[in-house]
Design a protein around this nucleic acid. Structure first.
Lengths: 207, 207
DNA sequence: TATTATAAATGACACAGTGTCACAAGTCAA
DNA sequence: TTGACTTGTGACACTGTGTCATTTATAATA
């Protein structure tokens, strides 16, 4: 978190700093972003920067958190709005996020935020399912899959089903590393989620 | 990719370098890892390092790719082994990944690899669903959700259902940023996947 | 208003790490 | 043995970080 001194700053100076930081994080990933650039474009002395923030992560996650807070508020609002329809809520949020990125700077900012490690690693683990590699690799996998048990009508659905399964698997893996979850618990959660995927989240008379 | 000179190296020297790199990337994330440390522990001169690799990312992704290749091979093998049962395949893989991390260095390596940006960002967007915050926030959300349409038996299942939906949403978001997918396409894919989630991936007479 | 205490601003500096380059050392074919 | 090519090496210039002693501003108090 930024220090109190930052929040005490006159609005204008605060805004200048935020703008400069946004610009830098839109230019490159957190990884490559430099404080030197931020203070150069904002014209704020080095020492002052450290009066306000611990380091560049501090600024970055401050900016990101602002977005997250907004989103969270919207999430709760939409849940009420849609009578608790989580699928509709998530869909609206997803679209609004995509819309927001029609603005180039927003787009670059989120892109850099998401892509860093995230994309690179995920890509290595799932690149076989990547649309742009749809070629032999996906076919290699999809031909091996026994679809007789699956509630799937065509190759396209199969493709997305695999994407879902991989996404949930990956997500569980990350969580287990992140939170030092015990092996047995991790397996239990994972199994439960796979079963939910199998049976579906909607009651069948509602489809 | 490492340069040819690296692959030409005598096995022993190559191994020394790999070990030193693994050690460094297990100690800290890619972000904080330093080439200086790698060359210090491996006793290889700075200039030589740059004869073999472009930079630290080059070493890191080389190591990570080795794991990914292995996993990919196992994936295909297991698909055959289980008569194309993707759920069983993924479950076995997931467990083997967890098992592998019982070794401390592996654990630290993957942990650092996964957690960097990935966890931090994902955590911001999903922290309301985080077990450790299961408190008011999750309750706030889950009480808002209309479960009458959902094929869900208790709060625990609801929790995991939400986790799944968020994971798939997040995954789509990342992909859309990563691959510059057109808005309409992104929405189409997303909708398809949400529908798959609703109806379930298994035929119902098979449950 | 003068005095003093407290908070904020500033930029020079020490330090750590990166990537390059000129030169040294090896290898190997003719 | 020579020459052509490949690989090894570490000093060096450069970029960026975080700190700290000092200056400046602010505000409370006598």
């Amino acid at each position: 978190m930024p220090k109190q001194t930052f929040f005490n700053l006159p609005e204008e100076k605060k805004q200048t700093l935020i703008e400069a930081a946004k610009k830098e994080f839109s230019r490159v990933s957190l990884y490559k972003a430099s404080i030197s650039n931020i203070i150069k474009t904002s014209g704020i002395p080095r020492g002052s920067f450290y009066q306000y923030f611990d380091n560049k992560e501090d600024v970055f996650f401050f900016l990101l958190n602002e977005h997250a807070k907004e989103r969270q508020k919207k999430f709760l609002f939409l849940l009420k709005e849609t009578d608790g329809d989580i699928f509709e809520t998530v869909t609206i949020l997803y679209k609004s996020m995509l819309k927001k990125s029609q603005n180039q700077e927003n787009r670059d900012f989120f892109r850099n935020a998401f892509l860093n490690m995230n994309y690179k690693i995920e890509n290595i683990y799932t690149k076989e399912l990547d649309k742009s590699h749809i070629n032999k690799q996906f076919k290699k996998i999809s031909h091996l899959i026994n679809t007789s048990k699956l509630n799937i009508n065509n190759d396209n659905e199969l493709f997305h089903a695999i994407k879902i399964i991989m996404a949930v698997t990956f997500h569980n893996l990350v969580q287990s590393y992140a939170k030092e979850i015990a092996y047995d618990d991790a397996v239990e959660y994972f199994t439960l989620e796979m079963n939910l995927l199998k049976k579906g989240l909607y009651k069948h008379d509602d489809l």
